[in-house]
């Protein structure tokens, strides 16, 4: 599905990543881990640009319109599947069919009660779930999520992650939370700063990961017991 070979990536005029080679097959659930600022978002944006029509994109900044309701913000993910007149009509007077369709997605993310409330009245965690819903409603084969559950607590976060993985064939997440990555994803790609520029430091399955590998990307020893009990 995605194949990169010795690629250099820039952000603006800054060289962020160097010598990136990886290959992602359909059906994989991959986590990109690394400290903030190491270049995960840049890599995710590049992956999106390779197959824009097949990717459900869930970026780090919630691109939501505060004045519009949760329903409208979620519906906006499907704008390209309807004609302009229908979209305009849905903005002013949504049909029952459309409301039901969005309600099904909202239900999976525990947003059913907030469907008709404007986004600016929601908490940060709720807004993030709206962001995920907008990506999910597109029903595309690949889900690219850049810190998708960073504002959710330690119970809801993994639960929502599992919902996302169940709905999409292929998933790539950029995460800084190691526990989440190890518990939800089958393959971990570590990105870190090596000689002043970001590189892929390791690319293994979750159960084979070693403490030394994790220490490479975080400049401290992780708590012992990270690697042994994750199946």
């Amino acid at each position: 599905m995605f194949k990169l070979s010795k690629l250099d990536l820039t952000y603006g005029d800054k060289n962020v990543l160097s010598d990136i080679s990886l290959s992602i097959q359909p059906g994989e659930v991959v986590a990109l881990v690394g400290e903030s600022g190491c270049g995960k978002s840049t890599l995710m944006a590049h992956l999106r640009s390779l197959k824009p029509k097949q990717v459900a994109w869930c970026p780090q900044q919630n691109g939501l319109v505060p004045a519009l309701s949760v329903f409208h913000n979620i519906y906006a993910g499907t704008l390209d599947t309807h004609n302009t007149l229908y979209n305009l009509r849905t903005l002013v007077w949504p049909s029952v069919a459309e409301l039901n369709k969005v309600a099904k997605i909202a239900d999976k993310l525990a947003l059913s009660k907030q469907l008709k409330i404007s986004v600016d009245q929601l908490s940060g965690g709720q807004q993030q779930r709206v962001n995920i819903a907008r990506a999910m409603i597109q029903s595309r084969p690949v889900f690219l999520g850049d810190e998708p559950v960073s504002a959710l607590d330690e119970y809801q976060g993994p639960s929502i992650m599992r919902t996302i993985i169940a709905e999409h064939e292929t998933c790539v997440f950029a995460l800084h939370d190691l526990d989440l990555a190890l518990s939800c994803c089958r393959r971990i790609i570590g990105i870190g700063n090596h000689n002043g520029i970001g590189r892929i430091l390791f690319d293994t399955n979750a159960e084979d990961i070693r403490d030394q590998q994790l220490a490479q990307i975080y400049h401290h020893h992780p708590a012992p017991g990270h690697t042994k009990e994750h199946a």
Binding site: G63, L64, V65, P66, A67, L68, G77, L79, N87
Partner: peptide
């Protein structure tokens, strides 16, 4: 234009679901 850039569809559709309500 952050929201506008993230939405799919033609210019008019994206406009009425992002820039227009923001600038209203």
């Amino acid at each position: 234009k952050q929201v506008y850039r993230q939405l799919p569809g033609t210019h008019i559709n994206r406009f009425i679901y992002s820039t227009l309500p923001l600038a209203w």
